[in-house]
Design a protein around this nucleic acid. Structure first.
Lengths: 261, 261
DNA sequence: AAGTGGTCTAGACCACTCT
DNA sequence: GAGTGGTCTAGACCACTTT
């Protein structure tokens, strides 16, 4: 406490006490008096400094946590949140020239950035298509899809989950049904099967994660996710794959190039 | 309460009571027993149903609120959050053919979607460029920029704030410095000035909003924002504008087309 | 006036981390 | 064992909305 000078409460203010306290700590972080990873004063210290009940302090800390500014560690303290290195996704990441190098985009990019990529939880199955997927794939009534799900990690830290859907009529009996989809990944296999890829459409949403997503991506409280749905189209205009991915917004900056045309 | 059957607590579970309660309500929402805008049982009703203290109920409700599933209205109750109509941004939205129609992209698209677009808080000034803007605009040491900020609304509901930065050497003394930038907006003016636009690069981040952003966009608790930074490049490769926008993630789905090349 | 959520107090016991 | 955050109780008073 001695090290971090915090203002006193303003008894005349209309602003709730717990909000004033949250403001003080937030400002300390924003002006750089507290850095990433620094411990903020304990609940007991803050109670003493402000002369308020514990619940009032916890309310204030809760505000900061839901803003993604701090993380509490049970038994250790509350710390200013530090952000992982960010992965930038460029809009040419699915260009054929990359695919032809025989490695999946994720592996190449992560290694180039000096990280250790890995993929786990690979599962493949066949099932009825969820309705939004069926619509995007323009499936005739009830056609099944091959479902490939997996999780991507950088330096052991999960950053993204992905689920691909391909029409059974295309993928059944091919290497796409194997856990290891081979050099260049699904898109390379599709081209070998004669589906020359023409373009991708990505739809991006941002929202708070569901419970399972918090677990799968080890998300800190207050971190939203990108929800990205990519549809791959073959040269004849036929949609051949839908990939549904959820990414920690902490770990990604998406980048797209638009022609002015 | 009578209308909404909620399970009992599992006294053997390791899961905290307030989390179990949050789970019950969340599941009711997810399975459709509660719809958008429905009122969930009051704190008093939940206390009675579960036989726990008020703080425990409030803790549970707080979880749902920070997940963006519910909104509390003082004196009325807690409601299942309803989402505003979504605006889809397609990657051709800055195509020249749209610009030539003489209206800004935002106005045209919103009207086509049956909404009433408006723009307010328009401010124009000249200032030193923030360092990230200076970098993107490749400004020589200390060159100033014209700063245009404004807020976009649909049916009176704010959905986006935007700040554009243009090198003073380009924009000074032009209509770009006027509050009304004229038909077709800034991009039309730039082309008249001889800067034929070639391409745009958009960088997208997602994060929880800052306090001022919550105010400016009237964001519900638990709603993240898109932070989008667009750089416009002229045909000679020179960056001529940077636009920094913050969008309610509730109100937008971004869509981009990528060539497989 | 009755019902709702918003804020706050003053305790209690527990689980985890560090030394 | 001391210090930390996690959970929970049982009250209180207030501000806002509805009837």
């Amino acid at each position: 406490m001695a090290e971090l000078p915090l203002p006193e409460l303003d008894p005349l203010s209309d602003r709730a006490v717990f909000r004033q306290i949250a403001d003080h700590v937030r400002e300390a972080i924003e002006r750089g008096a507290l850095h990433e990873g620094d411990k903020i004063p304990s609940e007991a210290q803050l109670m003493q400094h402000y002369g308020v009940a514990r619940m009032t302090i916890r309310n204030a800390l809760q505000v900061l946590q839901s803003e993604g500014l701090t993380v509490a560690e049970h038994g250790r303290g509350v710390f200013v949140r530090s952000r992982p290195p960010v992965r930038r996704l460029a809009s040419d990441r699915f260009a054929r020239r990359h695919r032809e190098r025989g490695k999946a985009a994720f592996i190449v990019e992560t290694e180039e950035a000096g990280g250790k990529p890995s993929v786990d939880s690979i599962k493949v199955s066949e099932a009825a298509a969820p309705s939004d997927v069926a619509e995007r794939l323009e499936l005739a009534g009830g056609e099944h899809v091959i479902v490939r799900s997996r999780r991507y990690l950088i330096n052991g830290q999960p950053v993204e989950t992905a689920v691909s859907y391909l029409p059974s009529s295309i993928a059944q009996g091919t290497q796409i049904e194997q856990p290891d989809s081979g050099p260049g990944g699904i898109y390379a296999r599709l081209e070998e099967l004669g589906f020359r890829l023409d373009r991708f459409v990505e739809e991006i949403r941002s929202r708070m994660p569901f419970r399972e997503e918090v677990r799968a991506l080890k998300l800190a409280p207050g971190v939203p996710v990108f929800h990205l749905i990519r549809t791959a189209y073959a040269a004849d205009g036929r949609p051949v794959e839908v990939c549904d991915t959820v990414m920690s917004s902490d770990a990604y900056v998406l980048s797209y190039e638009l022609p002015a045309r």
